[in-house]
């Protein structure tokens, strides 16, 4: 028993299929690289501007700032030779007009309700206080989770508050140190903000203390 006669089709040789896709891939790569070369400096410039503005905001407009790099488990103000400053973990030390340190701007990130929340906060190692907080990246639910950046009362909670932070229901605080009123309907997002700050302070406080000790020893040596 034989089936119906099907039309015979001429298959394209494999080498031509591979060659066509390879050529198309190479052309696509060339186009993308050309646009990348044009766009990348502009993207980096924008990111640097956003970061500069955020540092000014969380450290209450310092006169000038210095970047500290985390190298081999210690903070240093000297960028190692050949290292890419953007690839290293950084904190930013702010100074007032008299060249006295006013605080450190620290970046942190953790998964929130929808996606990763990335923020920057000012921290005073001397008093152990958070000086201010600003959200850098967030895709939290509009109208609910995005209150972590749009609710001015919640953002103001981080202006001069002792660490470690402790989230409490709005109005249910008992006057303990570090209490932050959470946001109704955005508990996970608000809790993530508090967790980011607590974790980063816990990780950075000993490193900042060690750095301050090294700077003091260096100054005495001079």
């Amino acid at each position: 028993m034989s089936g119906p006669d099907l039309p015979v089709t001429q298959d394209t040789p494999s080498i031509r299929l591979i060659g066509t896709l390879a050529a198309a891939g190479a052309l696509a790569g060339l186009l993308i690289v050309m646009v990348h070369v044009w766009a990348q400096p502009r993207i980096q410039e924008h990111q640097a501007r956003v970061l500069r503005e955020a540092i000014q905001e969380v450290l209450a407009s310092p006169a000038h700032t210095t970047a500290l790099y985390l190298v081999d488990g210690a903070l240093t103000d000297q960028l190692p030779a050949g290292a890419d400053s953007l690839a290293l973990e950084r904190v930013f030390l702010g100074f007032d007009d008299s060249n006295r340190p006013v605080g450190v701007a620290i970046i942190g990130a953790k998964p929130g309700f929808q996606d990763v929340i990335r923020l920057i906060f000012g921290y005073d190692p001397a008093s152990g206080q958070v000086l201010g907080m600003k959200i850098l990246e967030s895709k939290e639910t509009p109208g609910l989770g995005d209150k972590i950046e749009k609710d001015s009362a919640f953002v103001a909670e981080f202006d001069g508050i002792d660490t470690p932070l402790l989230g409490v229901k709005p109005g249910a605080g008992r006057g303990r140190i570090g209490e932050v009123d959470m946001i109704t309907g955005a508990t996970i997002s608000a809790r993530t903000v508090i967790a980011i700050i607590n974790d980063r302070v816990e990780a950075m406080a000993p490193l900042l203390e060690a750095y301050a000790g090294r700077v003091a020893a260096r100054d005495r040596g001079n």
Partner: peptide
Amino acid sequence: TIVDMLLAAM
């Protein structure tokens, strides 16, 4: 990819 980079830059 081109649109993505152009939007990020502009």
